[in-house]
Design a protein around this nucleic acid. Structure first.
Length: 938
RNA sequence: GCUCGGAUGGUGGAAUUGGUAGACACGUUGGACUUAAAAUCCAAUGACCAUUGCGGUCGUGCGGGUUCAAGUCCCGCUCCGAGUACCA
């Protein structure tokens, strides 16, 4: 009886789809479990073997939880807006919707082939108007909210307007832009409507503002901070520069404290939590005002070390600082201007690469030390960043290495304020242990106490105050792109107005080309119908714009993370036309119990999704504060690239053993042309690319041509991509699923190597054979042997523990051991093989279903109750004791577990082998740990 | 530089609160079956020494330490991977 996996798998995949086996509804009577994968961006390359790794893991857990009786929500969908489809559209003129649709179909086919238990009736696509209607809706909610620091909650903007009408902007504790001119109630009432809107924008949770953005000319769009890596775009690796542009931003900074604090309640890996903590970057200290001499201006600085304030010997402003022009003396004007110009020309990347070069210029101006009133020279230098704090620092060279280096370089004094510390060669940056000296009232104080005293003094003298700063910046939310959500925004004389909720979605218009317009406007500037008719509430031709009733619409679109910031809630009720999801569904499913995905989203998606969740929670829309309770980050599956070695400047290829590495160029070879022994299929290679059709080959003595191997990221350009399709074809989906899990711990990165796959495949065949003999199905309904039951229960125990710990590789070993052992004793008792099928069904669902059916069951195995582990089958009466001498195991001894310590010692000491080992010596000590070990010392 | 991981046979990887290091699998070698090959099955497989059988020495990146006992705990290093980048 053959294990015909292709047939079995097709049969069950069809059955699951036809019978809607995995469709789920909220069910108050059952405990819920929500297992979610980070949904994929459907790229043109299709799935490679790395993608399903996480999906398989979450599918195992989802199926396991079903067996345990949970009501399991396990959906899948597509993050289908994004750059690659648009880049492709630019090149080919194909509408991104079309390529996206084709890619989704391919993904779906590949996913179906692996046998996932997704509830596809809940699929979402972020590029679907039914979906992005609600993305736009959330945007309008953010627009109509401000953040109240007192209650730590977002509130309707109307409450703020009420406050303005009563007392202007006095007495507010809310999140806003940094500098807002004060006004009173009378002022407010007299302001024009446009002026009022302008003021309100400074408080809204999403706002339009002139901001310094990361502009990527090659992509023709701005990027968020998390999309820029080392001064280059995350996608494509193109250079990024700073540019001021009017953009929509998200006031995520208002949520900084909560985003930080609530990390503690999440069951996520420490490294991701740490990455978020660093990204949020909370620092506590004080802001201090320094008066500029002979000038009305004050320079405000932020410092975490107010205790070192008597060590200030100069100040440094960022070149972009607003005051620089005002305070620079005529003598210094020329060099200051030259420096500012040079700094502005440097790209972000240059500036970062240049960290070690110290540069700066004296402005000629002096500030007065807030306590001593001594003059302090004011410098500018690009080691101070305009975007952090106030863009100015009080330089304490004895306590900060950068200030120290700057002082050394420009020969500025380095006064020492630390007791018993030498600061001749480097700054002393220890915050805890520093004892302050030469500092008036701070003398003799240490660490926190000194900082505390300094802040109190600053506040007493009204020259500074306690302050907390965050590194987290507001997130730029506009993209100069076509393939994204349109903003539900139109402009009345430059003032943004929102389209009312009931008229959403605002659907993406058609355009002729997916490029910016000639005058540099985003692609939506090409749309002929992109104006809002406020009378009829619909999109109309641009020609109708009259700025009375018909207004131009926003030309930017939303970024990729918009749709992915809330999709986990849409799955709960994906067809809802009235709400993002029904209250009932939101209350029942709450949030994601297990989220599986890559760790590369640590500071992007995972932070934004938390932000929007908290915001929607503030509004009372959703009942939870956090979207993902527990998260597992699967490691990347790497590719094993293959290289042929070509003699430099020739067309001669040399087999690995004869190639001298300094005389050859390694050339990537498609891994599909290489067999398990690293031998190249030369004929296929010649046909692969014309340049090789005439190549000469220097082979091994036996005529084979061996390639070199190297582990790299799996990518099309490296020709090392392995598709799951081929594996499913050759070995079956169950083998693929088990093999991916068998490779090693889920969180660890590892190279893909099919060498071991036969082992897993053989295991499934052995499993099949356990239920069959030559004649056919051989499971019989008769009592199982004690031994067989012991094997079963040992397996239940271990596999269950392993699933709970996400240690899938070891559970597969356990199955292998169980099947080996059961085969050895020819077990064919249903009492054992029935529960065994259930145990294995989360891992290899197709074969499990087939065996289950053969054992006479008529409903899917997927909801069969999970076998219960019973201790009584495992009770042993003897233990094979390792007998060690001085910690080294020499032999083993089977002894009854009922023996006492003393009895064990006696039996061991009287054993012939012990006497041999001791060779007449008398042991100093005998350690007996009943049930574990015996160690004889001496 | 900082933060977080990691280092175990030829390979992927196991090893509970410190208690038989190398489970399971791949690969390799030998054997059975076969006209032959594949598939399958059986056996061996950390290194070294010894070998007629028993056996012995060394072994979890390196150097120390704690302990009857250390892959596991402590101290000091080395190397590799990931993230981050002048954050005042």
């Amino acid at each position: 009886m053959q294990y015909n996996f292709n047939e079995i798998e097709a049969k069950w995949q069809k059955k699951w789809a036809d019978e809607k086996t995995f469709q789920v509804n909220s069910n108050q009577g059952k405990k819920k479990f929500y297992g979610l994968d980070m949904f994929p961006y459907p790229s043109g390359a299709g799935l490679h073997v790395g993608h399903p790794l996480g999906y398989i893991a979450s599918d195992i857990v989802a199926r396991y939880k079903r067996h345990l009786g949970y009501n399991v929500l396990h959906p899948q969908g597509y993050d289908s807006f994004g750059l690659p489809a648009e880049q492709y559209a630019i090149q080919t003129g194909q509408h991104p919707a079309k390529t996206t649709q084709a890619n989704i179909q391919r993904y779906r086919k590949q996913l179906d082939q692996i046998g996932f238990s997704f509830d596809w009736s809940r699929e979402v696509r972020t590029s679907n108007p039914d979906y992005y209607k609600w993305t736009q809706w959330i945007f309008t909610q953010l627009f109509n909210s401000y953040y109240c620091n007192k209650t730590d909650k977002a509130k309707p903007i109307q409450l703020l307007i009420n406050h303005f009408e009563e007392q202007g902007n006095d007495g507010l504790d809310v999140a806003s832009d940094e500098v807002i001119a004060p006004f009173n109630a009378t002022d407010w009432k007299e302001f024009s409507a446009a002026k009022k809107e302008e003021i309100l924008l400074q408080y809204r949770l999403t706002y339009l503002a002139e901001t310094e953005v990361n502009w990527c000319p090659a992509l023709g769009t701005v990027l968020a901070n998390d999309e820029v890596i080392n001064g280059r775009s995350e996608r494509g690796g193109y250079p990024v520069q700073k540019k001021k542009m009017k953009q929509w931003s998200m006031r995520i900074s208002a949520y900084a404290e909560r985003l930080l604090k609530d990390l503690n309640q999440l069951d996520w890996s420490d490294s991701i939590k740490e990455a978020q903590r660093n990204w949020i970057g909370k620092s506590e200290g004080a802001s201090v005002k320094f008066k500029v001499q002979n000038h009305a201006a004050n320079i405000e600085v932020f410092t975490t070390r107010p205790d070192t304030i008597f060590g200030v010997s100069f100040m440094t402003l960022a070149p972009e600082h607003d005051l620089v022009n005002q305070i620079t003396t005529p003598e210094q004007k020329q060099s200051v201007e030259a420096y500012i110009k040079a700094a502005s020309l440097k790209s972000e990347r240059d500036r970062m690469a240049d960290v070690k070069t110290i540069s700066g210029v004296f402005t000629g101006a002096y500030a007065a030390h807030p306590f001593t009133k001594q003059p302090i020279p004011i410098w500018i230098g690009d080691y101070v960043l305009a975007g952090y704090g106030t863009g100015a620092v009080m330089a304490v060279p004895c306590g900060d290495q950068r200030d120290f280096d700057f002082a050394k370089h420009f020969n500025l004094p380095i006064p020492n304020v630390f007791e018993g510390v030498d600061v001749a060669n480097e700054a002393y940056t220890d915050k805890e242990n520093a004892i302050i000296t030469n500092s008036n009232f701070l003398n003799g104080l240490q660490g926190k106490k000194a900082i505390e005293e300094a802040i109190l003094a600053l506040e007493d003298e009204k020259i500074g105050k306690r302050q907390t700063n965050f590194r987290l910046r507001d997130a730029v939310f506009s993209r100069q792109r076509y393939w994204g959500e349109p903003f539900p925004v139109y402009y009345v004389n430059g003032t943004p107005k929102l389209i009312k909720e009931k008229h959403l979605p605002l659907v993406l218009p058609e355009i002729d080309e997916y490029l910016p317009t000639e005058d540099g406007a985003p692609p939506l500037g090409r749309a002929k119908n992109w104006a809002w008719d406020t009378k009829n509430n619909q999109v109309v031709e641009n020609t109708k714009i009259d700025h009375i009733n018909v207004f131009p619409l926003e030309l930017n679109t939303m970024p990729g993370w918009a749709g992915s910031s809330w999709y986990m809630f849409r799955y709960m009720d994906p067809q809802n036309q009235e709400q993002i999801a029904s209250q009932e569904a939101l209350n029942y499913w709450e949030n994601v119990d297990l989220y599986i995905g890559g760790s590369e989203h640590a500071t992007g998606h995972l932070l934004y999704a938390r932000f929007w969740t908290k915001f929607l929670n503030d509004l009372g829309v959703i009942p939870v504060e956090e979207p993902f309770k527990k998260m597992i980050n699967q490691g990347m599956i790497l590719g094993e690239s293959a290289f042929a070695y070509r003699l430099k400047d020739t067309n001669t290829l040399v087999t690995k053993s004869k190639a001298k590495m300094d005389e050859v160029d390694p050339i990537h070879v498609d891994v599909s042309m290489v067999n398990l022994s690293n031998e190249l299929d030369i004929d296929a290679f010649k046909k692969w690319r014309t340049e090789f059709s005439t190549a000469d080959f220097v082979t091994e003595e036996n005529g084979s041509f061996v390639v070199g191997r190297e582990v790299e990221k799996m990518s099309k350009s490296k020709y090392n991509v392995v598709n799951p399709d081929d594996i499913c074809e050759t070995y079956g989906a169950d083998t693929l699923r088990m093999y991916e899990m068998f490779l090693g711990p889920i969180e660890q990165a590892k190279p893909w190597n099919t060498a071991g796959i036969t082992g897993v495949h053989n295991f499934l065949r052995k499993l099949w054979k356990l239920y069959h003999d030559k004649e056919g199905f051989s499971v019989i309904d008769q009592p199982a042997s004690k031994e067989a039951l012991k094997i079963l229960h040992k397996t239940i125990k271990k596999v269950t523990e392993d699933i709970e710990n996400f240690s899938f590789n070891t559970s597969i070993s356990t199955f292998m051991i169980a099947v080996n052992e059961l085969s050895k004793i020819d077990c064919n008792a249903k009492e054992v093989l029935n529960p065994l099928a259930i145990l294995i069904s989360p891992f290899a669902p197709h074969i499990a279903e087939e065996l289950w059916q053969k054992m006479g069951h008529h409903v899917s195995i997927s909801t069969a109750p999970y076998p219960k582990y019973e201790e009584k089958f495992l009770v042993e009466d003897t233990k094979t004791y390792p007998i060690s001498f001085n910690g080294k195991m020499r032999f083993t001894l089977d002894l009854s577990l009922s023996l006492s310590k003393e009895e064990i010692e006696e039996l061991v000491m009287n054993d012939e082998k012990t006497k041999n080992q001791l060779a007449g010596r008398t042991p100093k000590k005998v350690i007996v740990v009943p049930g574990k070990i015996v160690n004889i010392v001496g």
